[in-house]
Write a protein that binds this DNA or RNA. Structure first.
Lengths: 341, 341
DNA sequence: CTTGACATCGTAAACGTTTTCGCTTATACT
DNA sequence: AGTATAAGCGAAAACGTTTACGATGTCAAG
């Protein structure tokens, strides 16, 4: 049986209130008494019952994070890094982190409702925002504290951190155009995802600005995995004439494209330029190393966590809207000049 | 203000006890009364306060999972998949999942002590077991429910799921020897990690059995990342003469080795055989596709979670020790016969 | 010597449930 | 008609804290 405040109080001949005060550092208890209590607590290995504390304080000291998983084989280096950032930051502030993994849709919303209505957490982290995002609408309508990684087309503003995918893809596309590419294909993911929507817009803007036509033949939609990138890459390489460059919405997809090129006997870096987005660590070790746009995933995890705690503890966030610029990392996968026609 | 049992009871002119019974499905309440209560609860959008439930039941309905992170840039596809398996299984049983991310060592132990002593969770999942594992000793000495992914050199047995790395590496090494390789290098990770210890033993056993010498020159220790694999690969390729095959303790490392070969102008698949362990999804898309040993990570996540719940709910586990055989997946990275001398 | 301020501590309510126990009433059996 | 049995329900304790409030005692100022 674990020792409680009662046990301590009885042992010392004082009241539970005094013990509680002494241990929490509240004022109104003599220094000598406090010393006795603290010593006894130490000796008896007293540990507070967090369940009781939480019920009393009506706070869980916990934040929630529901990871949208796509398919059973959910293997995404992006999330482990984000999770590490969030988890370590939460630990610094002595907050617990409640994680759920749910595929987007019905079940996911149920998970959100559980967290909110049953008050399992004090706040939530939302990632992979969608253009029309029911999760965000729900949280807003319930005035529940949350911070998002990604923007969304909502009426009301909400605190977020995002990476400027439009500007990033614009720069990347521009880079390829400058290298002489004219047939630049693009592998997108579901347009319902906000980041995907922004990224392809940057691609289109760069084409437009260069006076290049937007060719629907060169756009393919894929799922967010390397396997899907492989398939999309194969499809694109069968176009007549094939593209000279392929931009993928994410690094994972781009790695799949490189696999596809390999399987078609196409040399990435000399026959075909490939680029991605994220700069996961495998990007620099790919064959050849992959040109990409770097976003500081770990730091973003830390930041959204810190912002959420700010919101929970102080009620407001000093800097609630943060748009980061991704850094263009040019590597060998795009580093050759395509002969102009 | 959220509605409580009291509110419902007052509204309906019954006692809280009856409302509680009606809603929990306990016997001793008339069908008609139950119907009225359930209807009212629905109408008033009653949601139980889990904090109060937990304090009363002295159970958290939560399991804990402390992820050992190595370095700030923690990008490991292995963990996202394992986490998905655990998380989805926990959701099926309506259990919450509390996740911490801590680098191994002091801080990690503190996280374990918090979880156990402050009763934040009903049970714990332990992964990446170490040969001498203080976490397991601690949990055993406190009789705290847990299940491990991986074995360890402990006095007392404990429930675990593991993949037979020794047998796996033996088969893989044997495969390379059969292909004619004689100078087979091995990149290991810290021998303190149980799985690493087992895997290299399999390698040694295969060498021994084939009458090949164990050459310390051909063994390199690395960290568990692709970057570290890159460095280790470079180091091995500078040996005189260089190895004709390199086995890496994990796929992530193997992918790094392939990057290193690339940077040295060595053709993987024809000049050098490379193999890994895990079969992460990128392995099949590597250049060339990577020979590896497959372990069903997602399913293992599900299994350890289910076993832990079995332990918590029933007090015992039907099949507490499970050793799975990894499947050798031969791909192009080792699929050539090395000319015998 | 009285008054007020202050320090120290205890009492008790509160947080929202679950569950034991006992009471009443209705039903069945002798 | 009387008694055992069970069904339906309420009162109250319990889970382990925190905290508002009140009680007591001490001491300095008037």
């Amino acid at each position: 049986m674990p020792v409680t405040l009662h046990d301590l109080a009885r042992k010392l001949g004082v009241s539970v209130a005094t013990v509680s005060r002494a241990l929490s550092g509240a004022p109104g208890v003599a220094e000598e008494t406090r010393r006795r209590i603290v010593e006894a607590a130490e000796a008896m290995q007293y540990r507070p019952n967090v369940l009781a504390q939480r019920l009393q304080k009506q706070r869980t000291d916990t934040i929630g994070f529901i990871i949208p998983t796509f398919g059973p084989r959910f293997s995404d280096p992006f999330f482990s890094e984000l999770l590490a950032g969030i988890g370590n930051e939460a630990a610094v502030h002595e907050y617990d982190l409640l994680v759920s993994t749910r595929p987007p849709g019905e079940e996911e919303m149920i998970a959100y409702e559980r967290m909110v209505q049953e008050r399992r957490v004090d706040g939530l982290l939302v990632v992979r925002t969608r253009r029309h995002d029911p999760r965000i609408e729900y949280l807003q309508s319930h005035h529940f504290p949350f911070v998002a990684f990604g923007r969304c087309e909502a009426e009301e503003p909400f605190p977020y951190v995002d990476v400027d995918g439009e500007a990033g893809m614009y720069r990347l596309t521009h880079h390829l155009i400058a290298k002489g590419h004219r047939r630049i294909a693009y592998i997108t993911v579901s347009d319902a995802l906000m980041f995907s929507h922004y990224r392809i817009q940057g691609y289109r803007r760069a084409l437009e600005e260069a006076g290049l036509p937007f060719d629907a033949e060169l756009i393919v939609e894929a799922g967010m995995s390397d396997e899907e990138g492989f398939r999309a890459g194969q499809a694109l390489l069968r176009r007549e004439p094939p593209p000279t460059a392929i931009i993928a919405a994410t690094d994972l997809i781009a790695l799949g494209v490189m696999g596809a090129a390999e399987s078609c006997g196409v040399q990435v870096g000399s026959d075909l330029a490939v680029a991605g987005f994220d700069d996961i660590s495998l990007a620099s070790l790919a064959h050849p190393p992959l040109t990409t746009l770097r976003q500081p995933i770990y730091a973003i995890g830390q930041t959204i966590c810190r912002m959420l705690l700010e919101r929970i503890l102080q009620g407001t966030i000093a800097e609630p809207y943060r748009l980061l610029q991704p850094e263009l990392i040019v590597r060998a996968s795009t580093d050759f000049v395509y002969p102009s026609e």
